[in-house]
Design a binder for these strands. Structure first.
Lengths: 179, 179
DNA sequence: CTTTTACGTCAGCCATGTTGACATATCTAC
DNA sequence: GTAGATATGTCAACATGGCTGACGTAAAAG
């Protein structure tokens, strides 16, 4: 951690730096996801339910395939938790207008309530970290994390002020406007 | 991010900003952990094995309880994967010197080899993101992530140049020097 | 000497991922 | 309008990796 500017072993420093990043990700994700679990347990749900509720809440009218692409799980796995959430009245399905094979997903009021309860602690945690770290650090946080993400999904996080390659994507992905 | 100092709807922007952070974490972690899995499958292992191998490699001589505290799982869960790794010759155990009830864990050569294979892609991914984002962004990334982590574990990531509260912790946690 | 600690183990349960096969409704193209 | 592709669902079986609870042993600590 001393030995900046071409010390005796820059490769070791690089390695150490990379490993610290990996651990930061591990610990941050561990703690970030750790809190909502008790609430979920009260409902007989797990993290998978949380993820589904979250992304349906964020993308009202999302299709099943879009959700699958985000979560990167099989339809059978999704079907299990999604089925429960629909049966228990947290999510509604309705056929697509243009394509009636699709099941457009949306949170019910009950679903929105649970979503809010679940993410509240996470929002507080992030807000605290953002406040403590300051705007400049937040900018760096976003930049690095975006670059860690597979290129295919970076579009979700494009900033309008980005100079250079600003394609034509301002809207989220494809969903959201299919109601 | 626009709309500082009381724009039309600062609360909405804040909410949006926080949700983007949550999603950045989700996608980054999804892609960061996604790659090593094929390699693990070749060995008949899963992600749990990877985590154990990683943290034992990082903290040679770590005790079982320390590992449990990092992973935040039960000893029964750890025992399953750790047992396999020891039996298969990736990790060795030896009794502690001061306290012979402890089993100090260490990677074997075989273990180190696998560790390297597993984290290689992850190191490449982080290195690419760091290079693209630049030193300043990296600094912000570290600052924000550290603040997302539970206070109890932030010590692992303390920087020597940090002004203000620099306690007396320079060495990692407690392990590492117990051989 | 008793209690606490560090670790292990057996047994069973649950959540959540997987593969493979098959069914149905609907859209698209020829 | 029929054939094939697509969106979704479902059944069955299996693996991983969490969990709880109970019990055991060796060593440290009082």
């Amino acid at each position: 951690m001393a030995d900046v500017k071409g010390g005796p072993n820059p490769l070791f420093l690089r390695e150490e730096e990379l490993r610290q990043a990996m651990e930061l990700l591990f610990f941050a994700y561990r703690d970030f996801t750790g809190e909502p679990d008790q609430i979920l347990a009260d409902y007989g749900f797990g993290r998978a339910h949380h993820r589904v509720i979250y992304f349906v809440g964020r993308n009202p009218g999302i299709t099943v395939s879009e959700l699958l692409a985000i979560l990167r799980i099989t339809k059978q796995s999704l079907s299990r938790v999604l089925g429960q959430l629909v049966r228990d009245g947290f999510i509604t399905q309705r056929p697509g207008l243009r394509d009636r094979r699709q099941r457009l997903l949306e949170l019910t009021d009950k679903g929105r309530e649970l979503e809010n309860k679940l993410t509240e602690q996470q929002r507080i945690r992030i807000a605290r970290a953002y406040r403590t770290a300051g705007a400049e650090a937040v900018e760096g946080f976003r930049t690095v994390l975006t670059n860690i993400i597979d290129e295919a999904d970076r579009g979700r996080f494009e900033r309008p002020e980005a100079p250079g390659k600003q394609g034509a994507k301002a809207a989220p992905p494809k969903s959201a406007a299919r109601r």
